[in-house]
Design a protein around this nucleic acid. Structure first.
Length: 412
DNA sequence: TATCCACTGGAATATGTGGTCG
DNA sequence: CGACCACATATTCCAGTGGATA
């Protein structure tokens, strides 16, 4: 009996739709590409590279264009004997401080057997190690910091790096930084010293509109899918969904991939509009489950408090903090945890709202009422319960009876 | 128009964990 | 081991907030 069998039905090469795929040519970004190339020109000439700052929403090609250009830059530099170009790409999404970024950089340069740990050293010691590594490599070193805005208020690395040479920390290397951010207000938050060095050259990436997205998706779809497996309205629909949301190509590609995968799993011969719509819901659901899993146990209890309150009295549905806090404290005691203070609980509610798991509405009832938020669960209750059920605290809590009650009340 | 409610949200400070180094 | 280090989470404190109401 064959357990695994390669399905030949839908895809030619689904990797083309994945995040890390590097296309041969880039669509719809000619102007940015031209400008960007000009900014990088000094590198080839062997002079001090300019720091470049890119901003634009997620999935508008910032990272793709950067990787594409740096790839070419490294390759084209090989023809000049007196020039070595090294590029480093670093995504800062879980590097929340300059310290972490420095550690990460040192580790990417070092041998896997010779890594340093994320804590323990004084900040200066890590910088020293970093200068050493950079100096050993020498030549032109371009450091890409994707999602720089994740580095919090401590931006010291952003002015240490470009100045390292003039401060005589290093002598054999010239450093250029390319910062990428999807928060264009980030620039204003920067330390002025950082702002004028990091943002020497700027490039703005606007969102794609529907026709542009459609063009991009069509090019990729042609490579990814077999001929005639896509119904005519599939690509336009993916493009439209992505355009009306954020104008992100990433989103459109994910949608296309998921729709294709859905069709393949069902052994459907073609991908239809219905697959796309279903894929959209599936992706959304995955996103939310993902963010629910990453919460701390108090975060989970907070969510559970909202569920409990909702099931307890659905007529009262948007709840005020105090009511939820009472529920939460009962749950915490029931699971032998010390309940958090009110302020911390408030932070958890705020975080859940940011993630789109709770819906938060500001209210002001004036004298006798005051200003407060009302919270309401914004994901299906059974989804919340099943995700919570898969986590560590299952067993300590009677989620089943909650589910039962919710079912009886018609909430599921 | 001044008041007042029920929080909100910033900031300073504390606690606990996981790490280096001599 | 003890002195130090960075960091995530919490706690404590408190100055706003802003519109319905007296």
């Amino acid at each position: 009996m064959t357990l695994f069998e390669r399905s030949e039905a839908i895809f030619l090469d689904e990797n083309v739709l994945h995040d890390d795929y590097q296309p041969e040519s880039l669509e719809e970004r000619e102007d940015e590409l031209k400008q960007y190339t000009a900014y990088l020109q000094p590198v080839i000439n062997g002079s001090q590279p300019r720091n470049i700052f890119l901003y634009g929403k997620t999935g508008v090609g910032k990272t793709a264009v950067t990787k594409y250009l740096l790839h070419h830059l490294e390759a084209d530099a090989k023809q000049y004997d007196d020039l070595t170009v090294t590029t480093v790409y670093l995504n800062c999404e879980d590097l929340t401080s300059s310290y972490r970024v420095a550690v990460e950089l040192v580790n990417t340069f070092r041998d896997p057997a010779d890594q340093i740990s994320r804590t323990g050293y004084p900040l200066n010691a890590v910088y020293e190690k970093l200068w050493n590594e950079l100096d050993q490599i020498g030549g032109m070193i371009l450091i890409v910091l994707d999602e720089v805005d994740y580095i919090g208020d401590d931006d010291s690395i952003l002015y240490q790096l470009p100045r390292a040479r003039s401060n005589e920390k290093i002598e054999h290397a010239r450093i250029g930084i390319i910062g990428i951010s999807n928060d264009f207000k980030y620039r204003e938050k920067l330390d002025p010293r950082v702002e004028d060095t990091l943002c020497e050259r700027e490039l703005h990436f606007p969102p794609y509109d529907a026709p542009e997205l459609q063009n991009i998706l069509e090019k990729r779809a042609a490579l990814a899918f077999k001929t005639d497996v896509l119904e005519d309205d599939v690509v336009p629909l993916c493009a439209a969904f992505a355009a009306q949301d954020k104008g992100s190509a990433r989103q459109g590609l994910d949608l296309l991939l998921e729709a294709g995968d859905l069709a393949r799993r069902r052994n459907d011969p073609v991908v239809t509009e219905a697959h796309v719509r279903e894929a959209k819901q599936l992706l959304e659901k995955q996103r939310i489950e993902e963010s629910m899993k990453e919460l701390t146990s108090h975060g989970h209890l907070t969510l559970l408090a909202v569920v409990t309150a909702t099931v307890g009295d659905p007529t009262q549905v948007p709840f005020q903090k105090q009511h939820l806090y009472d529920q939460y404290r009962d749950l915490a005691t029931a699971t032998n945890r010390d309940p958090l203070g009110g302020r911390a609980f408030h932070n958890h509610l705020a975080e859940l709202s940011m993630l789109g798991i709770l819906d938060r509405t500001k209210r002001n009832e004036g004298r006798g009422g005051g200003i407060y938020y009302e919270y309401e669960i914004d994901v299906p209750i059974d989804a919340a319960l099943s995700t919570l059920g898969n986590l560590h605290m299952s067993g300590e809590l009677d989620l089943e009876s909650l589910r039962e009650k919710a079912t009886n009340l018609g909430l599921i």
